[in-house]
Computed example of a mutant assay.
Amino acid sequence: MRAARAPRKWWQAGPVRLREFWQLVDEVFGPGYGRALAREQVLDALDGHTPVEALDAGAQPRDVWHALCDALDVPDADRWGTGRRRKAPPPSR
């Protein structure tokens, strides 16, 4: 018999998943503005693509999130939402 595992919370998980990327976009930038940024903001760090184009091309959501936050000077403390227990997931491997 296996021991019950504690449920994993997304903020404790490894890489940022696509669903989590969109949750962060909505929470950090607001749903309307954040979605517009993701569709229209061309980023040098994404080889001249928008976040949506980069995601569609297979870029890792974590990398796209960092590129968007870097381009808009989002402080590290604000990048992972407002939940007081949230923290950045460990780097992708």
Score class of each variant (00 low, 15 high):
A45R: 04
P89D: 05
S92C: 13
T50F: 01
P89T: 07
W10E: 03
R8Q: 11
R39H: 07
L43N: 04
V74Q: 02
L55M: 03
D70S: 09
K87V: 14
E27N: 09
T50C: 00
G14D: 15
W11G: 04
R62A: 15
R79A: 08
R84P: 06
R62H: 13
R35S: 09
P7M: 07
A59H: 03
V16C: 06
R62I: 02
D78Q: 14
P61E: 01
G83I: 05
H49A: 05
R8C: 07
D56L: 13
W11N: 04
R85W: 02
D78L: 12
D78A: 15
E53G: 02
V64S: 01
V74H: 06
A6K: 06
L72W: 10
T82N: 11
G81C: 01
V25I: 11
R19F: 14
P15A: 15
A54C: 07
R79S: 07
W65Y: 08
H49G: 07
A45W: 08
G48T: 05
F29L: 05
V42S: 10
V64G: 06
V74C: 02
G34C: 00
W65M: 02
R85T: 11
A67F: 06
P51I: 05
E53W: 11
G32E: 09
A13P: 05
P91I: 01
M1N: 09
A54M: 00
W11L: 00
L72R: 11
D26W: 03
D70M: 10
K87C: 13
T82M: 06
R8L: 12
T82S: 12
Q12N: 12
E53T: 13
F29M: 01
A45Y: 03
L24G: 10
G58V: 10
L46R: 03
F21C: 02
A13H: 06
